[in-house]
């Protein structure tokens, strides 16, 4: 498949905000005139079940309506998935794997079959400190943004704030943006 389409796959568990993260990235990108798609993979919908969500970003209209099998970037919101889900499936060695974990890169390498670049971040710690809940999607978006710069930083931040103000209120919106900013600034690339 032609790679003029930038593709990201998020792995999480129901309730962790993988779908929201994928959508926020797409929505912010269209504000920059990009063409996007964002969709979750729906199985049985329940809290805690493994879920996938996808984002496509391109300078040109996107006609593909199949799932993403060879992403540029894989984002894992929950480290417990590493043991049960083949998160690196279809991710080439030129791809990027971003994992929310309190483990080191070497420890992670022993869990996944992947020779490309790996970035780790303890997003749970950031989320707990900023939001008081282990919802890591916005912190993980901070890492995605830092590592890929796939959308303009300010545009994404502003869109995120607007989105959460509408859905969660001003207080939680600002806290989510703080988690995003902290992860962006603290992550070791």
């Amino acid at each position: 498949m032609s790679k003029d389409i930038f593709e990201i796959r998020f792995h999480g568990r129901g309730g962790q905000g993988a779908k929201t993260a994928a959508a926020l990235l797409a929505e912010a990108s269209i504000e920059q005139g990009k063409y996007v798609q964002s969709f979750p993979e729906y199985g049985a919908e329940r809290q805690g079940a493994p879920v996938k969500a996808f984002t496509r970003i391109s300078d040109n209209p996107i006609y593909l309506h199949s799932g993403i099998t060879n992403p540029n970037v894989v984002v894992v919101l929950d480290q417990t998935l590493l043991k049960s889900i083949p998160v690196t499936e279809g991710l080439g060695d030129d791809g990027l794997l971003i994992i929310n974990t309190n483990q080191s890169i070497d420890e992670v390498k022993s869990l996944v079959n992947f020779n490309g670049k790996i970035i780790v971040i303890d997003a749970v710690k950031i989320a707990l400190e900023e939001l008081g809940r282990a919802v890591t999607n916005t912190a993980m978006l901070g890492v995605v943004e830092k590592a890929t710069n796939c959308v303009d930083y300010e545009t994404l931040k502003t869109h995120m704030l607007k989105h959460f103000e509408h859905n969660l209120g001003k207080d939680l919106a600002e806290k989510n943006v703080k988690a995003f900013e902290r992860a962006y600034n603290e992550v070791q690339i």
Binding site: A23, Q37, F39, P40, Y42, P61, I62, H65
Partner: peptide, 12 residues
């Protein structure tokens, strides 16, 4: 329209 593929996919 196609369920989920279209109905739940955010697109431009």
């Amino acid at each position: 329209q196609d369920g989920f593929i279209t109905s739940h996919c955010v697109e431009t």
